[in-house]
Nucleic acid binder design. Structure first.
Lengths: 217, 217
DNA sequence: AACATACTTTAGGTTTGCCAAAATTAATAT
DNA sequence: ATATTAATTTTGGCAAACCTAAAGTATGTT
């Protein structure tokens, strides 16, 4: 598989393609490609056995495709751990680098990297490295924007999104922090929470909070 | 520059393109491509300013091309050190892995990798990581096959060539070993040496000895 | 039921990097 | 000087991945 094709598989996984049909449009947006290009590639990935595709409905991953996606994502996250912990590269830069490294990493190198890093459980953004834990995160995590007012949650994982990373850096907010959701105002696109761990009020835009995954604390 | 183009630049450097014209044929053989493909790419690299090309004569690297080649080779060798020293991957496997990693490594990552590895001077095959030392190796090293009978030399660097690596492994021969050249027999393609460091006779095929670089001990 | 909208697909075209076959050039030998 | 040989270049083509424009389909609205 080419790096290009691996990117499609990965995006399908990230958009929930394990269980539902993912639209070509959303894949196109994510990869910054035109929709026709995506249609074309989906047919190729069907032939390769990684994707099931229903015309005009969208794509879902086969078991083989899901496995493949997890392998790439594992490599991506192992490299992120390495880049942050061993090389000291800033967390907002590692994603871009890992995005490239993931495609040129043999299974043997990945396994040995995992040993060298002493079996890390999560990447710097909180994403699971273990396949089963990936599954658990997918079923049990929801975005902060979906949490009901009054609930207490733990920040488990963030999507690498420049605005959100900036927010985390300036607000001194971390993965593992406990938040109480105090108010959600769709009108002004604002969610108000209280960060118990850091003992401070935390407000952020609802649209950005879609990139922040939490679980019931 | 694409990874493909970087490979051309690197091969030109390795074939001495800094100082002499390298034939398209030799580049084609090295990269396992057809000669027309090489001709075509040379024109592209001329336009990009990395190569000077004289029709029917061959290509040489411009200063810019030479610098570029060194940057890639440095990344390649840093990764090799990492793979061997930190991950414990066998020396005959690292070249292939580094061949891919070198193209997706930003300058910042390379610099921090070098710090992390504590400024290694050489890759596991003896290739220099420092630019000046690369120059020195290029001018001062010659292949074992070129050494006159009776001379004493030090093994400085080996080219990643499966046969030679196998030979090194089975013969317990290492970079740094001191050899005395006892006999060269072109007829039977054999060079006979005495490994002072290991105190043993060492015979190898002349054709393989072209991949073994030495300097006057 | 007809229409508007939003998405998907088809059709035709581009770029990059590759190839084989044929023509050209350079170098060498006669 | 000519002929042979070896390398290079030209020519025409192909595949992967991308694009835009136009046609087709699904869905929800009136």
């Amino acid at each position: 598989m080419s790096a290009t094709q691996e990117d499609y598989i990965k995006v399908l996984f990230e958009l929930g393609g394990k269980s539902r049909n993912v639209s070509n449009k959303s894949v196109a947006e994510r990869l910054e490609l035109s929709p026709p290009t995506v249609t074309e590639m989906m047919n190729i990935l069907v032939t390769a056995g990684y994707v099931e595709y229903v015309k005009y409905k969208g794509a879902s991953l086969t078991d083989s495709g899901t496995r493949y996606a997890k392998h790439i994502i594992r490599k991506h996250r192992l490299w992120e751990v390495f880049l942050v912990e061993k090389l000291g590269i800033s967390i907002d830069a590692v994603h871009r680098e890992a995005e490239l490294l993931e495609h040129v990493t043999g299974d043997d190198v990945a396994d040995k990297l995992e040993v060298f890093l002493d079996y890390p459980k999560f990447c710097p953004h909180g994403g699971a490295i273990d396949f089963d834990e990936m599954d658990r995160q997918e079923t049990e995590l929801k975005t902060l924007s979906e949490v009901e007012v009054g609930r207490t949650v733990k920040i488990s994982r963030i999507i690498d999104e420049e605005k959100l990373l900036m927010f985390f850096k300036t607000q001194k907010c971390d993965i593992g922090d406990i938040l109480v959701v105090e108010d959600v105002d769709e009108q002004i696109d604002l969610i108000t929470t209280y960060n118990k761990t850091k003992d401070q009020r935390l407000q952020l835009s609802l649209s950005i909070s879609k990139y922040l995954f939490v679980e019931t604390a």
